[in-house]
Structures are given as structure tokens and as C-alpha cells.
């Protein structure tokens, strides 16, 4: 939150009193303005209280539902179990860069992040192994990791076959469901990419709502406009785990987003190149050569731009 934590208690009390009294129809706005003018700290205290109030009001329905879903047994405060539990806590401890504190009774929500330059392996509660590619983030909901959302970057999934349950991964509105397979999903460029090396996944695109089966040796790219299916060499799926970025007819914005993650520099794709595709292999190394390698292979231009680089079509000679 923007407000400081160290606001004096009596100022907070005054702010809370005003917050409450302003809710009534005959609120004393003149008195309130005078209170604000009397001391700049009053404004700070009120900001802080107003912000908490706004967050509470915004989430009241969701919070109410979750609280209602909990067992109502009154556990004495002294014997209350640990307050925070990292959801799906497994051998994942190492991979757990940020665990969102979650109430023990409620569906745990855990955010997994990987650092720049390092991929992370972890096991989810349902027997799924995930490798998160560098600078990526994933949100997992539920004790059995029933809902997974790839928020940024790329992840490789190795899902144990278990007909009793399915796993769903959401990526920028696309839903990937599978029963036992190996595949990657990528959220780069705000789009969607799935590549399958083993088994079959079912993908529901946000535009159509129709399920499409993507089998081993197939991939799908999606964006706002729709999705396309293309072949891919199964060995190339998740090849970043062995130091290479392999692309087969991949949209350039997705390639650029990958390179940005590996290089730590923003990569802007000029509108002139937005519809371009790239096929080829880039060696990751320390990430610094990826962009020049790409530009060389594609014969396109790199120009420095604030915080990173811009890719644009080479000037005509």
C-alpha cells in the first residue's frame, strides 16, 4: 500500500471516526475539511484508512464467500494452528520464491516465481512436476493444485497419468487441460503458446470456447485474434531446459518476450514486424547474445531504446 505503516494510533482513530461519520447522510463535511486542514498528517491517516476501506469493499463478496466456506468451529486462539501455510508445500521449498500467505482452511493460493537466469523445478501436490523457465511466475490454487495459472514466462509440465483427476493451466485466457502428458505453456507477449512432446492436451480458446486436441508433435499459438496449430519436433518442446530456444514458425512477439526474459532487457517489436514469424534455434548462454543472434538470422534491425531495444525491419538498401 502507498500509505506508511508508522502512522500514530490516535490519528488513525480520528481518521476512522471520520470515515464512519462521512457515511451518514448528514455528514459534517465542513468539520471534515477543517480537520484535514489542521494537520497534513490527518490527510495521510485518512488516505490509509480510505485505502483499506476500498480494498475491503472491493473484495467483500469474495471474502464473505471464503469465510462462509470455512468450518465454523471456534478454535481457541492459543491453540490455533500455524496461521500461514504455503500451499502445496512439497519439495518445492527451494522453488518457492514467493509464497502468498494463505489461510489454512481456505483454498491455498501460492505464487511461484523464478529468478532471472535460473529455471526452477518443483513438484505440485498432485504428482505434477513443473519446471519454471527463468523470470516466470505461476499461481497455483487449491490443495491438490487443481487450478494453475501461468502469469508470465514459460513452464514445462510433466504430468503423471491419473484418470481420477485433470489438471488445468490457464494462460492469458486460454485453458489447457490434460490427464497425463508432457508439454510447455508460454505466456510471452501477452499471448499463448502450448507445445506437446508426449500425450495430448485439450485447449479451449477464449474466443471460440471450443476444445481443440493438441497431440504430441503439435503446438498452438494464440492471441487476441485467434489460434493456429502447427507441427513441432517433440524434442524441441521445452528445449530451454538444455540451453536452447527452439522455434518453429513462432510469432516474433513471443520470441521477443522470451529473449527479454533471458536477457533482462526490454525488447520492443516494431509494428512493422508484429506479424513476422521465426523458425530456428538460439543458444541461450548468458542471454546477452540472443537478440543479436536473432537479428542476424532474421536480417532485422536492432536499435537501443529506453530500458532495452527495438526490433524493426531492416532499411531497404
Amino acid at each position: 500500500m502507498t500509505a506508511r505503516l508508522d502512522i500514530e494510533d490516535h490519528l488513525l482513530d480520528e481518521a476512522l471516526a471520520w470515515q464512519q461519520s462521512l457515511e451518514s447522510d448528514d455528514a459534517d463535511w465542513d468539520g471534515y475539511v477543517q480537520w484535514l486542514e489542521a494537520d497534513p498528517r490527518h490527510r495521510e491517516a485518512f488516505d490509509s484508512v480510505a485505502l483499506v476501506n476500498a480494498v475491503v469493499e472491493e473484495h467483500a463478496p469474495a471474502v464473505g464467500d471464503l469465510l462462509a466456506a470455512q468450518p465454523t468451529v471456534d478454535i481457541p486462539r492459543t491453540s490455533r494452528p500455524r496461521r500461514w501455510v504455503a500451499g502445496g508445500a512439497i519439495a518445492a521449498a527451494l522453488a518457492l520464491v514467493v509464497a502468498i500467505p494463505v489461510l489454512w482452511q481456505a483454498d491455498p493460493v501460492t505464487t511461484y516465481r523464478s529468478d532471472p537466469g535460473k529455471s526452477r523445478d518443483f513438484a505440485l501436490a498432485n504428482g505434477t512436476n513443473v519446471t519454471l523457465s527463468p523470470s516466470s511466475a505461476m499461481v497455483v490454487t487449491g490443495k491438490d493444485a487443481a487450478k494453475i495459472e501461468l502469469a508470465s514466462g514459460e513452464a514445462y509440465f510433466d504430468v503423471r497419468h491419473d484418470p481420477a483427476r485433470t489438471l488445468t493451466v490457464t494462460v492469458n485466457g486460454y485453458q489447457v487441460t490434460d490427464i497425463g502428458t508432457r508439454f510447455i505453456v508460454n505466456a510471452g507477449g501477452g499471448g499463448f503458446h502450448v507445445g506437446v512432446s508426449e500425450g495430448t492436451v485439450s485447449v479451449v480458446a477464449p474466443q471460440s470456447g471450443q476444445a481443440v486436441q493438441i497431440g504430441a508433435g503439435q503446438q498452438m499459438f494464440g492471441d487476441d485474434g485467434g489460434a493456429t496449430v502447427a507441427p513441432i519436433t517433440p524434442d524441441d518442446v521445452g528445449s530451454w531446459r538444455s540451453g536452447r530456444l527452439s522455434y518453429s514458425d513462432a510469432p516474433l512477439p513471443l520470441v521477443a518476450a522470451d529473449i527479454a526474459r533471458y536477457s533482462g532487457k526490454a525488447v520492443i517489436v516494431d509494428p512493422s514486424l508484429e506479424k513476422s514469424h521465426f523458425s530456428g534455434i538460439l543458444v541461450i548462454g548468458d542471454g546477452t547474445r540472443l537478440l543479436t543472434d536473432l537479428a542476424t538470422v532474421m536480417a532485422i534491425r536492432i536499435s537501443p531504446e529506453k530500458g532495452g531495444y527495438r526490433l524493426s525491419a531492416a532499411r531497404a538498401h
Partner: peptide, 22 residues
């Protein structure tokens, strides 16, 4: 992280939606 919401490479609305949901 190396995401670059400010640079406007990614369709900002959708990207933002995901973040805000988180």
C-alpha cells in the same frame, strides 16, 4: 523481472488483467 508493461510491447489490457487478477 524483465517484463515490460511500461514499454507497451504486450497488449497492455490483457496483461494487466492477469496481473490484477493475481
Amino acid at each position: 523481472e524483465t517484463d515490460f508493461a511500461a514499454a507497451g510491447v504486450e497488449p497492455a489490457d490483457r496483461r494487466r488483467t492477469t496481473e490484477e487478477q493475481m
